[in-house]
């Protein structure tokens, strides 16, 4: 047992020692994925990139998968596919419900589910073999047909913009214009504790805070989109570089059999990243909604905590 462990350790260290310079070399040779998606063809004025093709393909797959796993209407005694979907839906519900608040949960949950499943399956789809490697050479440049949808900033920015509008819609529906105004610009000081002059002066302070808050809210679009893009794009780069590294080994007689194994651990890493990032996107969106909508549940939440003995 120990011997094997030690062997694994030594192997990892050697692998890392060989890998790091080679990754550098691969990236010097321009083996990385281009930052922008490549246009494969265009319909009228609309350029269709490899990322869009992937996005459509995976969307079709998602819809077909859900349709076939449900086999029409859902049933009380769940078939296997339905049980799987239910466990995902139930798990997400348990996590999201206390964050969003009981009041907003009913109308927000479908949107959150859509985000979770869409991003999750797009990310996982990016790990399929052939993504980024099937394509044509034209003009001395390799043009892949498929690229993970979220490895294109257009897709993640679109997701983030839709999320922003969804956020605004849900917040207006739950808290109303007045509630949202109070949440952003409103004077949160307690009138009974301070003099009216200070209260009036604080109005301007909170107005300034509200302006900063507005920019911060707009920044959420950028932060959401770049987080998802960075993770997926970085992962895609990592996999490509590992693949390029393994192709460097192909000329060495014995080691070349090992070369196929080199990208493998990173696929596990990317699998994890795909799940976590879809979860993070959904959770952040629900936190943003909960910041505005979730006020009434606080006392209940505390009571619940005491009831479950969280503090023990």
């Amino acid at each position: 047992m120990f011997a094997r462990n030690n062997f694994a350790r030594v192997a990892l260290v050697v692998l890392a020692a060989v890998c790091i310079p080679c990754i550098a070399q691969c990236s010097e040779h321009g083996e990385g994925v281009s930052a922008a998606a490549t246009v494969v063809f265009s319909i009228g004025q609309f350029p269709i990139t490899d990322s869009v093709i992937m996005s459509w393909a995976i969307s079709l797959l998602i819809i077909l998968a859900v349709k076939f796993s449900l086999r029409g209407e859902a049933q009380i005694i769940p078939p296997r596919g339905q049980a799987m979907i239910e466990s995902l839906v139930g798990g997400l519900r348990d996590i999201v419900e206390p964050v969003v608040g009981r009041k907003a949960f009913g109308i927000v949950f479908p949107c959150l589910l859509g985000y979770f499943f869409f991003i999750l399956l797009q990310n996982l789809g990016g790990l399929l073999p052939g993504v980024g490697s099937i394509g044509i050479y034209s003009g001395g440049e390799f043009k892949p047909f498929f690229r993970p949808a979220n490895a294109d900033l257009n897709a993640t920015l679109a997701l983030a913009v839709v999320a922003f509008f969804a956020w605004a819609y849900y917040c207006l529906r739950c808290a109303g214009v007045r509630g949202m105004y109070f949440e952003i610009f409103g004077n949160k000081a307690d009138k009974s504790e301070i003099s009216s002059f200070v209260y009036g002066a604080l109005f301007f302070v909170f107005l300034g805070v509200g302006l900063i808050e507005c920019i911060s809210i707009l920044c959420r679009i950028i932060s959401l989109s770049f987080r998802l893009f960075g993770n997926t794009f970085g992962g895609e780069n990592l996999l490509h570089n590992m693949y390029g590294f393994s192709s460097l080994l192909k000329n060495i007689p014995v080691v070349n059999y090992l070369s196929y194994l080199i990208p493998l651990p990173f696929y596990f890493l990317e699998f994890l990243v795909a799940i976590i990032q879809s979860f993070v996107f959904t959770l952040l969106l629900s936190v943003y909604i909960g910041l505005v909508c979730n006020h009434g549940d606080h006392e209940k939440e505390i009571l619940k905590k005491e009831e479950y003995g969280y503090n023990s």
Binding site: S55, A158, V161
Partner: peptide, 10 residues
């Protein structure tokens, strides 16, 4: 264009 396509798709 791409933004529109992707957001409509989602």
């Amino acid at each position: 264009h791409l933004l529109l396509i992707q957001s409509l798709n989602f």
